[in-house]
Design a protein around this nucleic acid. Sequence first.
DNA 1: GTCTATACTTTGATAGAC
DNA 2: GTCTATCAAAGTATAGAC
Lengths: 190, 190
Amino acid sequence: MKKKQDTKEIILQCATRLFQRQGYNGTGLNQIIEESGAPKGSIYYHFPNGKEEIAVESIAMMRKMLMEGAEKDLAEKNSALEAFRYYIHNIAAVFDNQGSCAEGLSVGLIAFETASTHEKLRNACEMVFKDCQSLYAHRLEQWGFKQERAEELGVTITAMIEGACLLSITYKCGDPLRMIAKQLEFLLDK
Amino acid sequence: MKKKQDTKEIILQCATRLFQRQGYNGTGLNQIIEESGAPKGSIYYHFPNGKEEIAVESIAMMRKMLMEGAEKDLAEKNSALEAFRYYIHNIAAVFDNQGSCAEGLSVGLIAFETASTHEKLRNACEMVFKDCQSLYAHRLEQWGFKQERAEELGVTITAMIEGACLLSITYKCGDPLRMIAKQLEFLLDK
DNA sequence: GTCTATACTTTGATAGAC
DNA sequence: GTCTATCAAAGTATAGAC
């Protein structure tokens, strides 16, 4: 009774990887079939609503990975500035290796693509961003920032990271992320 | 001898609008044909290399519109903080009207989509972002920032705006942009 | 230069045998 | 639950008449 979940899990992991690399519109069902090895019938058995349903669950998977990574990285240091710098530098490192392009993050691409065309997917992406904001804000409160200021910074840091990821992908280099990490000292100065 | 440029111009304007709304992968040639009224033959006459060539010229058009808008908005005020606030609030206003979704900006979506698949398009987007950085940095120097600091801020502000645009599109609301505008006082403090 | 017809591929989705 | 065959539609691109 493990085999059952395995097939679905394999499809989902494969689809998630493809969506992150090529986006929602850039990834075809046939490609998911090829790379996962699962035949078309299996896909529509596990995801009766087709591509959109796979994407919704893929976004949920990205959300989980994002949150876990962020919680871990932000817990290690003993000041807000140090923690966020460490967190962002870890993300930056992903973009330096030319081959691996943004594996493991990047809900941004799907959010951009689907914002005005697929309400369900837009909604799923909105939840991921809101979760990021909340997590950052919550951590900042623990480091002594007032609630209002922490929430402002939650939005701001989320935007900065997403924007810097976009630049880093485009430039094929993590420098933009390292640049915003450097600017945090001006924002996190109590 | 005006008619000749007109057809190409109409195709280009139409394609630009569609690419901004739906992205590169989300926009089909057939859709460009339908909405522009130009038949398939005309498109391949004016753009022998097909869709990719249209996209390259579309990005050039977006670049021009972006730069002109930015130069105009940033020239009006008499301090860096005021000017950038004005500029960003103008962008934010676009996202509040639910209908019109990011018309006139948003190279970000195409950059995200094509970064790892279409080198030519990735390159065109990289040039747009670099132009933004340079423009911001140049203006900041004119307001008395040192060159090194101005360049740092050029990258940072570009990332912040792109990231906040992503959040604003996803939330269907310009608040994230207004939030980063507010944070500029911490970054532009000499 | 403009337009039509068509070729060929890939897309997402369904039906039904096993 | 798994897999194959097939669908209609949309995708990009080409040839050639006008």
